[in-house]
């Protein structure tokens, strides 16, 4: 900072404006996962929120009321598309029928970007409908990278992949998840959606230091953060997305801000859905933490 005024003479906002925090080119601000329960409220109240994320599969239908609402909301807000069925790590062939539907939806919505998960969801033509962890080894790495490239060629754009919460690891793993994740991004050219809650949940379940995860991810690959709630059973933690964001996850979010800077951030709530205002308050908390952390960390 240019002068030596003590820090408490400055408002945080001024601090942020004076700081050399870099606003990344694709920074969308602070957003929320759009849920059907809130469609009517969003259209009526037009809440002050920067963007929405929609679950792609929910709108891979031909028509009807939800899709009609979605298009109305799209006219008011930027959107990103988030999928759960790509199954990028599966040994089954890529599902081009799914990819075609994804492309149709993306042509309709013109999202800022499209994301899915670094996982597999099924094999041998059976679907678990779950985000299952991969073994982190060379075989899986080669397999995933080659499929990410195929998907990106098909969609004509890079995709974002998100780290999943996991409850087990395999003996055939040869590297850490963050080494694997980073290498997938480097080789395939995909970008990274870091779910801060998922890092916390997996760190607890597998006894690693979540800070090591953050430090292991290349800075300029991260394009989006997810924040969500979990259920803590003491010996293990489950990624339930049915609670507000927990305190240790807010703390880890601060660490992530310090490492990665200003990143498009959103609250992801999938179950036990509260009124829209409650989630907007959580989005505000995320915004305030980012302002505080980035302002002060500059000193």
């Amino acid at each position: 900072m240019a002068n030596n005024q003590p820090i408490n003479h400055l408002t945080r906002e001024l601090l942020l404006s004076l700081s050399d925090v870099v606003v990344p080119e694709h920074f969308l601000g602070f957003g929320l996962g759009l849920r059907t329960e809130h469609f009517q409220d969003v259209l009526n109240d037009k809440p002050n929120i920067d963007w929405f994320e929609v679950v792609s599969e929910n709108f891979m239908v031909d028509g009807g009321k939800p899709k009609h609402y979605l298009h109305s909301i799209r006219e008011l807000y930027p959107m990103v598309m988030h999928g759960v069925s790509l199954s990028i790590g599966s040994t089954d062939p890529l599902n081009f029928d799914y990819l075609r539907k994804l492309k149709v939806l993306s042509n309709e919505l013109q999202p800022e970007w499209i994301s899915d998960h670094l996982c597999w969801t099924g094999a041998h033509e059976k679907n678990s409908h779950d985000l299952l962890p991969l073994p982190y080894n060379d075989e899986a790495l080669t397999h995933v990278c080659q499929r990410v490239e195929q998907v990106q060629d098909f969609l004509g754009r890079p995709i974002l992949l998100e780290n999943v919460s996991s409850y087990l690891s395999y003996k055939s793993s040869e590297m850490t998840e963050w080494q694997f994740f980073n290498e997938v991004a480097r080789r395939s050219g995909c970008e990274i959606l870091l779910d801060i809650n998922n890092i916390y949940v997996s760190a607890r379940n597998h006894h690693f230091n979540p800070q090591d995860y953050l430090n292991g991810i290349t800075k300029d690959k991260v394009k989006q953060f997810h924040l969500a709630g979990h259920s803590d059973y003491g010996d293990y933690v489950i990624d339930t997305h049915d609670h507000p964001v927990a305190d240790p996850v807010w703390q880890l979010y601060q660490q992530a801000l310090i490492r990665f800077g200003l990143i498009s951030t959103m609250i992801e709530r999938d179950d036990n859905i509260p009124p829209l205002v409650d989630l907007l308050a959580e989005v505000d908390t995320a915004r305030k933490i980012a302002q505080q952390t980035l302002g002060l960390s500059n000193e």
Partner: peptide, 30 residues
Amino acid sequence: KLSLHSLQQQMMNYLIDDKADIAQHVVEHG
């Protein structure tokens, strides 16, 4: 070493048919 293909097959067999072959390939810790 368990191939990715076999690992996924065993995991699906566990979820769908309760076959526990996958267990020996899962790390025991904590």
